[in-house]
Amino acid sequence: MENVRKRLLDALAARGLLADDGEMTTYGEPAWREVPAGAEPQALMDATPVQRRLVECARGTAPMREGLCAAWVERAFSRLGMGYVSGDARDLYERFCHLTGTGDLMVGMIVAVGRAPYSADGWDHGHVGLYMGDGVVAECAGGRVRDVPLALWLSAYGVASEPRWGWIGAMALADAGPQKD
């Protein structure tokens, strides 16, 4: 992970997004966000059947075109049969994402930022992904779905605003059903 950290910090510096100390971004956010030991998010193995089914639905959801990360997440939830919650990434961030401790992150939660400085769309509408368990965030970016290690996602997208997470539509999937099949 140290090599990934160095590459990200080098890329941020090349874009002029790091403050002089290199530890903070020019937006006043940490340049790298570790997942602290003892504060690991939920593992996929510990997820409820409904949480695991959402992961399956997300894996089967086709990518959307550029700038439609929220639509991809919303479609995955819709395929689960949980209804359809609409809004752009910033709407989802402001309405449903209030947690910041990685120990509170559970499979099926949306992970979002209110501003992402890599495009005009990202700056205006933010960015959102879906926590898949085992330290992985799935996102639809650049017209494709990809898995990103949590620490890298938090660092790369947390450049301009604090990453937060929560249950879309306030639907706590972790409370839906027994822990074991």
Rank of each mutant, 00 (worst) to 15 (best):
G142C: 05
A37I: 09
Y84Q: 03
M64W: 10
P49Y: 04
D181T: 08
G38V: 03
E139Y: 08
M109G: 01
G87E: 03
P178S: 08
C97K: 04
D10W: 04
S86C: 07
L54A: 12
L130T: 00
P49D: 10
C57L: 14
A70Y: 07
M82K: 04
R33K: 07
V85R: 04
L68V: 10
P49N: 06
E94S: 01
G101N: 14
R33S: 10
R146W: 05
A14S: 03
Y157A: 02
D147W: 09
C69Y: 11
R53C: 06
A141G: 13
Y118Q: 07
F96Q: 00
G114Q: 08
A151K: 00
P163S: 11
L8I: 04
G129C: 07
A19C: 06
L154A: 03
M1Q: 13
E2K: 07
A70Q: 14
R53K: 12
L152A: 03
L130D: 00
G169E: 13
A156F: 10
F77C: 12
E40F: 08
E34D: 14
A120H: 01
A160Y: 10
L68F: 14
G67H: 08
V85K: 04
G22K: 00
R59A: 15
G114H: 04
M24V: 07
M109F: 04
E139G: 13
L68G: 11
Y157M: 06
L12H: 00
W72R: 12
E74V: 12
L9R: 06
C97N: 01
A174L: 03
A112D: 08
P63D: 15
M106V: 05
E162Q: 11
A62C: 12
M82G: 01
G122W: 10
R52Y: 09
G129V: 07
A11N: 12
D10V: 06
R146C: 13
Y157D: 03
E29D: 07
W72Y: 14
E29Q: 15
Q51P: 11
G108C: 12
A62Q: 11
G114P: 03
R79N: 14
E74M: 15
D175N: 01
C69A: 15
A120D: 09
A116H: 12
V55E: 05
L99R: 15
D10M: 02
S161N: 14
M109D: 03
C140S: 15
C97W: 04
G83Y: 00
A62M: 11
Y27W: 15
D20S: 12
P41A: 10
V50K: 01
W165H: 15
G101L: 13
G169I: 11
T102V: 11
G28D: 02
G108I: 10
G129E: 02
R115I: 11
A71V: 14
L105H: 02
I110T: 09
A37K: 05
A47K: 04
L12F: 07
G108N: 10
G83H: 00
I110W: 00
P163R: 05
T61D: 02
A120T: 07
A11L: 09
I168T: 06
V113Y: 10
W165Q: 07
W153Q: 03
D181Q: 04
V35T: 12
A31R: 00
L99T: 08
R90P: 01
G22C: 08
A39M: 06
L12Y: 01
D20Y: 02
P149H: 03
D181M: 09
M106H: 09
T102G: 02
H127P: 09
A174C: 13
E74Q: 15
